Amino acid sequence: MTLTRREVLVALAAAGAGLATGCSGDDTGPGPATDPTSAPPRSASPSASPSPLRDPTRLRVAGVIAEGLTVPWGVVFLRDGSALVTERDTARVLRVRDGGATTVGEVPGVDTDSGEGGLMGLVVHPDGDAVIAFLTSPEDNRIVRMSYDGRRLGRPKVLVGDIPRAFNHNGGRLAIGPDGMLYASTGDAGARERAQDVDAISGKILRMTLDGRAAEDNPFDNRVWSYGHRNVEGLAFDTEGRLWAAEFGDQQTDELNLIERGANYGWPQTEGPTDAEGITGPKAWWSTDDASPAGVGIAHGTAYVAALRGRCVWAVPLSGEDAGRPRRRLASEDLGRVRNAVPAPDGSLWVTTSNTDGRGDPRSGDDRILRVTVG
């Protein structure tokens, strides 16, 4: 009998984390115990610069935007304030407004029974007439472009293919930078040593033009922008154009990293804070019990890091190139696993749950997109 992806994940979760502490993606192995309201020792940098909000780390659930979804993964806002949302396990793209969601397309060629792969990251082309998505096909992970006329998606055209895929560690996040370039995260796909090979595409953050070609000023004359990554599922730019990434650790430490051109982030040689020569360490970090960080959004001088295993949003004040003490927010059994935290045009956050992904405990209404007020 062939098991589906969800049946395998449920079986693994039921068997306990001790079976695979070194290779899981969303739920990694146990790390040191921590205070449930704060992070373990991390960067000792100062708090964020002054904000018009009284406390940008204070979050409150204000309502439900949409419910009954299946692993909502990528969220990108349109000019009218609505958003396009990918469902990882159905290959659907939804247009979501307050009060509901409608399907604008089901992307063909997506392997929806591929472990942590499926239909993942999404960005809207600056021209507004297309979207770019990161997906898992039966053969590989790939980045595709699809036309979008405001009602329906067109057929996918491959921009980048042959990105290694695996049951775990597929990366999948996309972002368009202030330089107009497309950034993408790729996981190590279980072949950890590839993360240190700058000629390999896995275990990296990539930088390319919007048609998938390597940017001319990249450090290694290919698409690679930074390397030594295990599994980055969160990418976001701050107001000064700095790129931040949330990364799954292995058995000890999850990370929030400031991404620099050509930098080595250590995997698999290091995990978490390090003094190793030639390695760039994280700006903030957590035990793997407290985070398993997925999406990250930046607004109000704060990085909002969605935590799957931590079942919360970590609010991390930013000050220039430094990160202050993370604050644990929205921790609730009713919320469960949190997949993404995306700043909305009105100053709120759209926070997505991930309880239908095979590792959670779905409740009535899951999965949901919640409107969360800040301050």
Rank of each mutant, 00 (worst) to 15 (best):
R194C: 00
E193W: 11
A284M: 03
N222A: 01
D80L: 03
R145C: 01
T280L: 06
A101K: 02
L258G: 03
F237P: 15
N141D: 11
G25D: 15
M146Q: 13
A195Q: 02
N170P: 03
M181Q: 13
G172M: 01
D27I: 06
D98W: 05
G212N: 09
G320Y: 11
A39Q: 10
T136K: 10
G100W: 15
D113E: 02
S82F: 07
W350Y: 09
V64L: 12
S319P: 14
G190T: 10
L119H: 08
D322Q: 14
W350Q: 05
V96W: 09
H300I: 02
A294K: 07
S38W: 15
S287A: 11
T373F: 10
R194V: 01
G29F: 03
R79P: 01
G272E: 10
T34V: 15
P219G: 02
G234M: 10
D334V: 10
R151A: 15
Y265I: 08
P108M: 14
I163A: 01
T239M: 11
R95E: 10
F134G: 15
P268Q: 06
L59N: 05
R337T: 06
D346C: 07
I259Y: 12
T136S: 08
R371M: 02
T57I: 04
A133D: 11
E233S: 13
R311P: 02
G187T: 13
A245E: 10
I259R: 05
G18L: 07
L19V: 14
S332A: 14
S147T: 15
N168V: 09
V351W: 02
E321L: 01
V131P: 01
V123S: 01
P326N: 09
R152V: 06
A133E: 13
R145P: 04
D149A: 00
G68R: 04
R79Q: 15
R327D: 14
T34Y: 12
Q196Y: 12
D27S: 13
N340Y: 10
R152W: 05
D162M: 01
T270H: 07
G241Y: 06
Q196R: 12
G228F: 04
H169A: 01
G347A: 03
G25Y: 13
P156F: 00
